[in-house]
Design a binder for these strands. Sequence first.
DNA 1: TGCCATTACGCCGGGCGTAAGAATC
DNA 2: GATTCTTACGCCCGGCGTAATGGCA
Lengths: 303, 303
Amino acid sequence: MKLRQIETFVAVAEHGSFRRAAELLHRSSSAVSVHVRQLEDELGLPLLERTTRRVVLTAAGRTLLARCRSALADLRSVAQDLKEEAALGCGRVSIGCAPSVSMYRLPPILAAFQEAHPGVTLQLHECFAQRMYHDVLEHVTDFAIGPRLPGLKDFAFRPILLDPVVAVLPYARPWRGRSSVRLDELAGLPLVSMTRDSAMRIQIEQAFRAQGIPFEPRFEVVHHQTLFSLVENRLGVTLLPRISVPARKGDYVVAELCEPAIARELCLISLNGQKLSPAAQRCAEMVVSGLRARAAALKAVTE
Amino acid sequence: MKLRQIETFVAVAEHGSFRRAAELLHRSSSAVSVHVRQLEDELGLPLLERTTRRVVLTAAGRTLLARCRSALADLRSVAQDLKEEAALGCGRVSIGCAPSVSMYRLPPILAAFQEAHPGVTLQLHECFAQRMYHDVLEHVTDFAIGPRLPGLKDFAFRPILLDPVVAVLPYARPWRGRSSVRLDELAGLPLVSMTRDSAMRIQIEQAFRAQGIPFEPRFEVVHHQTLFSLVENRLGVTLLPRISVPARKGDYVVAELCEPAIARELCLISLNGQKLSPAAQRCAEMVVSGLRARAAALKAVTE
DNA sequence: TGCCATTACGCCGGGCGTAAGAATC
DNA sequence: GATTCTTACGCCCGGCGTAATGGCA
């Protein structure tokens, strides 16, 4: 069975004439006749009832027509779709992202991308490291934004920025005006934190233990925003990756943690040895440069 | 774009190797290589990332693979399906049928057909003439069983039987033992009839008028069975096409109407100049012979 | 160096058009 | 007899395999 034969058969069936089909396809009617006969021979069934005056589909012809039409149309549209996809006219970009990043920083970047390429469908999977890496491996996502995990050789890492842990402190003495804070200064202060056991929180706990300071959160909350409300109401302090701190200043102080400084490297994570789709590539560029620009702006303000 | 190229591409993509694809397809690897290159050239996009050690799909390749696989599978299965359909292994037969016929006579015939060809899906459209003819014309049904209508040249009619109108009378004097009845004998008797204005009922009304007998049903009912219950309870008599009278004898007399005799020709109705599908053909045969056999048996009993 | 994809080249089959034939109205 | 599908025939393109080339480990 060849695509040409099917194409010819469909044309004949739709126009009820070998002659007209031949005209439309810019072929001789002998070619058309042969194509149809070949199909019939291969299937062992008559597809068309021919009189010299009229050509009518047999039952087999009708079912063949119906199924071939859809298959043909599908194949034809693929070419067009792929070209549009390459031109960023359409396509789908699926992104895995750590919650800390997707919380504030990512959305405006995605919005910019969406505006530049309205034909592309964006999908965001907010998840923690394990799921994130799994999704990239399985092509569930095209790429991910998250912490670099060691010992994984199937992945390509492109560093985006170093995300330091900051303390969020009440806008009051002695914190007002501070841009950095030592961990031991926080000893004894009431801690508030998320209940979720993210990799970051584990890293912070370890830092507390290493300094001999107990990590005993006074409040454990589900919603990120609640942390800030608690701090603003002077109920405690919290430690967070800076990137998850809203840009809009609130009634609190954000001071970078030092001694020990804790930071994680945020990377663009993709599959090793595989090019991204044009749309994904463009999107990844915008994400990387967008996140870096924000980080640079923040650093400038701090210094 | 040719089917072979797609086939080759799919094989390469699925096995991640030109060499293995060539083996599976019983082709040289040069042919495989050329096919893929031709596809890429035609689409203007790379489909596979090749290193000598590994072959990986590009994004475009992935979407092409997904869509081609389904289209290919669809085309492949068509051949098989058509052959099975020709062998009555599967397929669909859609039948239009007058309610009088489908009420009692048709179901056992369809059951026999279904038993003989369990793979074939049967569909029954019970409807009156106009719809019935329309459905045949539009290929909604393969054929129909109903009255012959004059002046329609797109249809082929195959007479099945002449269906006479019979009177259904109380099993009591003076009807007991009667096998025929004149219309004037019914004058003055309470009539029961269906509310539905079928062509048959109109024909019967005309016969009444022609004889100068008023057609004023005492009861008009919705359910066919009710007619018989009314007659059995001596509340009236009714006139019906014989074919819609149940075979199982009840507490009533069935007498053929004569003077005037009213009958309609029941036909197998199909499209002129079009062969039925094998399954439909077989089914039509069984329906025709089944209906004729029943009619012959009835006539034998009556005589 | 060995494996694998690619390129080069020549052969052969198959698809196409032209032209003659058959069938239907 | 006109129109339309079919068959016959010959040309030529294109697909295939063999063999040589080039890359990556």
